[in-house]
């Protein structure tokens, strides 16, 4: 076996997994708190990428230095994604909080459809080229045939975001409130936690990580379009389910597992059915282990 090819696939899978993880976090956090599959989450990621592209193009044309462009565009993408996530929750989910779950899910599908077509109409249906924001590092050159600089960038950013998120959830006040709310919404509200605020915060945090994922993948692949959120969203969802939806470490683990399997599958077997594979994976997990790798199985209370 060609070892170099193997390591390439390995790191390719790891990069893929990182992106899935950044998106999957949003799914899993929202699910953990309000038990809703936020179907429109992939769209937030797409909007993050679009905002990043638009702002960075404007700034570049205005003649700003590259580093400033990267930082400002990245921040704009994150801020806007958060704003969209926040607004989305207020419009499409909050009025349905006591409605049957089917209603909220249909509303989420509607939101996804709306946002996709909103970007399609306001921007374009074509693929837009996305500038490679990540410079080539000199010191990394000897290793770049195995792990390219953008891949390195994606990996390290993901690790950084994960650490930040763990810190947020473990040690901050809002993180504690989130954990309490996910266990028992009513009890949490009785203890003085503003549940509405916690839910909003969850959407905001999830959107922020999705936006980071959006920019990273866009600059890695080099092009974006309005439809990019859908398939990435579905795959991230698969990853979240694989790891055990509602569990944050589960989402990360599931993402890496999915990333690797996809990478090796396409690398060694066939790339025609790349997307089919994720779906088959999903069906199989849900049948044999619906609670996922790290999820707890839930027995309904009678």
């Amino acid at each position: 076996m060609d070892f170099e090819y193997f390591t390439q696939l390995f790191f390719g899978g790891l990069t893929r997994g990182s992106i899935y993880a950044l998106i999957a976090l949003g799914y899993t956090m929202v699910y953990g708190i309000i038990e809703l599959i936020n179907f429109a989450h992939g769209e937030i990621y797409m909007i993050g990428a679009f905002t990043g592209l638009i702002i960075s193009s404007v700034l570049t044309m205005m003649g700003m230095p590259t580093l400033a462009v990267i930082i400002l565009a990245g921040m704009a993408a994150i801020i806007y994604s958060c704003a969209y996530g926040y607004t989305m929750e207020k419009i499409a989910y909050k009025p349905l909080r006591n409605a049957p779950r089917l209603s909220a899910l249909i509303s989420a599908i509607g939101m996804s459809l709306f946002l996709q077509n909103y970007v399609l109409l306001a921007q374009t249906s074509d693929f837009l080229p996305f500038p490679s924001l990540v410079p080539e590092f000199k010191f990394w050159e000897p290793y770049s045939h195995i792990l390219t600089t953008p891949e390195l960038m994606i990996l390290s950013t993901t690790v950084f975001v994960m650490i930040l998120l763990t810190f947020l959830i473990k040690f901050t006040k809002i993180g504690k409130a989130m954990r309490a709310t996910s266990q028992d919404k009513i009890m949490a509200s009785l203890l003085g936690i503003n549940v509405d605020q916690v839910i909003s915060a969850t959407f905001v945090v999830g959107s922020a990580t999705a936006a980071i994922g959006g920019i990273l993948i866009a600059s890695h692949i080099g092009q974006i379009n309005f439809y990019m959120g859908f398939i990435a969203g579905i795959k991230a969802f698969v990853a979240a389910v694989l790891g055990g939806i509602g569990s944050i470490p589960g989402a990360v683990l599931g993402s890496f597992v999915l990333g690797w399997t996809e990478s090796f599958f396409t690398g060694y077997i066939s790339s025609d059915y790349e997307d089919v594979f994720a779906f088959i994976f999903l069906v199989v997990i849900l049948i044999f282990r619906p609670s996922g790798i790290l999820g707890r199985s839930q027995t309904q209370k009678v």
Binding site: L36, I37, R101, L102, L105, I234, F237, V238, V241, Y273, D275, V276, A278, F279, I280, L282, V283, L286, I287, P290
Partner: peptide, 25 residues
């Protein structure tokens, strides 16, 4: 047969996945 044990929202996603599988095939 295999997926009907799943709760409503999972069912939605699995059938969506199934739809895509058929189309991609």
């Amino acid at each position: 047969y295999p997926v009907l044990r799943l709760r409503g929202d999972y069912l939605a996603i699995v059938t969506l996945g199934f739809g895509e599988i058929i189309r991609l095939v």
